[in-house]
Design a protein around this nucleic acid. Sequence first.
RNA 1: GGCCCGUUCGUCUAACGGCUAGGACGCCAGGUUCUCAUCCUGGUAAUAGGAGUUCGAUUCUCCUACGGGCUACCA
Length: 482
Amino acid sequence: MTDVRFRLAPSPTGFLHLGNLRTALFGYLLAKSMKGKYILRIEDTDQKREVTGAIDSLIDILKWVGITFDEGPFGSAQGRPYIGDYGPYIQSQRLDIYKKYTDELLAKGGAYRCFCSAERLTKMREEQAARHKPPRYDRTCRNLSREEVEARVANNESFVIRQSLPLSGEIKVVDELRGEIIFQVADLEDQVLIKSDGVPTYQFASVVDDYLMRISHVTRGEEWLPSFPKNILLYQAFGWTPPKFIHLPLILNKGGGKLSKRQGDVFVEDYKKRGYLPEALINFCALLGWHPKNDKEIFSLKELEKEFNIDGLGASPAIFDQDKLDYLNGYYIRQMTKEKFAELAKPYLPTGNFNTVLVSGALSSTQSRIKYFSEIPTLIKPWFGPEDYGVELLIWKDLTKEQVKVNLLELKDKIDNLPDFTKIETEILNWLKKSGKKNGDYLWPMRVALTGLKDSEGPFKMALDCGKAETLTRITAAINKL
RNA sequence: GGCCCGUUCGUCUAACGGCUAGGACGCCAGGUUCUCAUCCUGGUAAUAGGAGUUCGAUUCUCCUACGGGCUACCA
């Protein structure tokens, strides 16, 4: 029985994308639910696209959402320390390892040196396209004699190393979600394994590393399905048993098509900044392509670790639904304790010395109204003073201006003479009831006077938060408008 | 163009070949001391099309359509 080992292999080309988060999460959950290990490996074989600081931000954001690794690099110290027996876990630190396996393949005849220039290749592809042929390397260098190869290497000619694929036949591969898929080998290209600068391509490095790191299950995005047969052929060339492959369906934009920056926020960092909770992000991603045995929809990471299973995975792509994410985030916000909410809301509060009663009053009211934290600043504004409003807003249904004025004057007098201001709600309600007045005739103008808004928190809560003096001030201001 | 994958309410999805096709988000309506939000109740809405296999197809097979991915010395 081989050990269960999953891996996440991101390339440090920027922030973590929502799609990558989903891939990261599924690998993690599958590993946990199968009591296996989860390994982080950084695939930085494309130095041109590498973004400085990306490794750090990747590690940080993964930690923030709660995804942890049993092996892999950690921290941001010089040289990148790591945990695990199969390191280093950063591919740029494994170049000598790849060299060894390239030599082995070359010796076995599973690969060959290709001296074709970039110019020749583009020209070749243009011609193929013009003749409506699929663009494919024409294998010019595949049959070079050993003498010629040696001479050109000795002559310092630049070359890449390509995989020698069989020329015909079919290759059957098995994806755990889709079953057997058959490809014609003739449709495949002798892909580049080692670039001219000696750095391996993803296709080579990931196969070698998955083998060396004893990965038992590869989870990756569906966009890798076309190169799947080439990967298997590489395993075969080395004589290695391939791991199981699980190609996760893609996450699509609203309009369909791969999730992209142009359509709005796609990075986990963006959502973090806007005040989304890791719990909500995790719960949301888990439901994108996975379904539990029952109809439960709210899951914590811990619960997912237990209940996640490969049987619940689907193979069809999912469109990213902002509404559902918002719902989930709002749900988690409402579930949390007042204390936790206040703590998390801090960064969104105005700085300076504010009346703490006012602030906590404002917060207690926003908790049931926001979907994400960055909504807080605009929502709490009424507590610090009513919004500018037109007189018409004070008028409830078919009351006249004069009636509203009279009502507010009565209300003001009543509030001013309240024996106990903290009992304002029951006192006013009783008074309205006893004197046969309609609630709306008084409460609507009162609330508008306090908030300046059409839609807002109720009048009594506002009055209590503001205090007696401020309440009377705001009502007086409203009366003066009428 | 070629190759590959996919297709159940608008969206995420459920349904060992057998039920009025279920749940959630959204939307709509009603209720909860004025509005909004929360909360509760109810409603709306789907098997892409066509053949075939079968007593019976959402489910299996084929074709078509549509959607998506890949087609680099990028991952």
